[in-house]
Computed example of a mutant assay.
Amino acid sequence: MSEHPQARPIKGVHHTAFRCRDAAQTIWFYRDVLGLVDPTGVVLEEVTGTGENDPYMHVFFQMKNGEYIAFFDAPGSADPDWFARKESFDMHYAFEVASEEDLLAMQARIQSFGVTALGPVDHHDFVRSIYMYDPNGIQIELTYRLPDHDKVLGAAAATFDQLLADWQARTREEKVAKFGAEAIDRRARRPAQV
């Protein structure tokens, strides 16, 4: 018998949250440019859970599948450097559209607001995407699934354990030099017993 309680199924994503420079500017981009529904939100004076005094607005945009993308407008604790454009590998958010026609229509819409939307870019025969940056330096991807999407990812899943093992062997030395063996070998630690 495992020492860990049985995992319960995770239903999906409720929200993904990011810091924003300004709520009104962020609402313009996500509501007006991308066409998400009118946001909702709350203003709180303290950080929930810590009680730290840091007034903030928490803004939520709901998508058609019920999931949200959310933002924190907390100028008191904001670091201006955080809003520099992030590299795609560091952070990006990918929204899904239904078809190539929708992707191209959205690209034209986005560009009509003066926002650059690069692409479309093909990704290994499973998705095609366009890319832009939001006002907070976050790369935004709009993507749609190509006909072989499930086949490509299914084939990758069948060999993923070996692919991971090979990748770990190939990159371990570089990672140890950069991050240290302790950081690479460490697994999440259990919290101290209360």
Rank of each mutant, 00 (worst) to 15 (best):
K11Q: 13
W167S: 15
R109P: 04
R187A: 09
F72L: 11
A70F: 09
V59A: 01
V37L: 09
E100F: 01
T171K: 15
Q168D: 07
G180C: 09
Q25L: 10
I184H: 10
E141S: 04
A192Q: 09
M132N: 01
F60S: 03
V152G: 01
A78F: 02
M91I: 02
A84K: 09
A74E: 08
V176T: 14
A17Q: 15
F179I: 01
K86H: 15
D38W: 09
S99R: 04
F29I: 02
D134L: 01
D122S: 09
F29G: 00
V13L: 12
V115M: 05
E67H: 11
R186D: 07
F60E: 03
A155N: 13
D125T: 08
E100N: 10
D22N: 15
D148W: 07
T48E: 14
E52A: 00
A98Y: 03
W82L: 11
F95M: 06
R21Y: 06
V176A: 13
A17K: 04
D90F: 00
Q139M: 14
E3F: 15
V121L: 11
G180K: 06
E100P: 01
F61P: 02
W28H: 11
A117C: 15
E67Y: 03
V152C: 03
W28S: 03
R189S: 13
H58F: 12
R190I: 00
K151W: 06
T50Y: 08
D102F: 00
F29E: 02
E67F: 00
R172E: 14
Q193I: 12
L44K: 12
D185L: 08
I10G: 10
S88M: 11
F72Q: 06
T50L: 10
L146V: 07
V121D: 12
P39Q: 06
P135E: 04
A17C: 14
H4D: 13
V152M: 13
D54S: 14
F83P: 05
N136I: 04
A156Y: 12
E3W: 11
P9M: 10
K11C: 11
Y133C: 00
M132Y: 05
I140K: 02
D32E: 14
E100I: 00
R31L: 12
H92T: 02
A7S: 08
P135W: 00
V115T: 13
H123D: 12
E174P: 00
I27Q: 04
D102N: 10
I10M: 09
T16S: 14
M63I: 00
I69N: 02
K178Y: 08
I10K: 05
G66Y: 06
A177M: 08
H124R: 14
C20N: 10
M132I: 10
Q139G: 00
T143L: 09
I10T: 08
M132Q: 04
F18D: 02
K151Y: 01
R8V: 15
R85N: 14
G154Y: 06
K64H: 03
F72C: 06
G119S: 06
T16P: 07
A177L: 13
V33P: 00
Q193C: 11
R145S: 15
F18S: 03
N53H: 14
P9L: 12
H15Y: 02
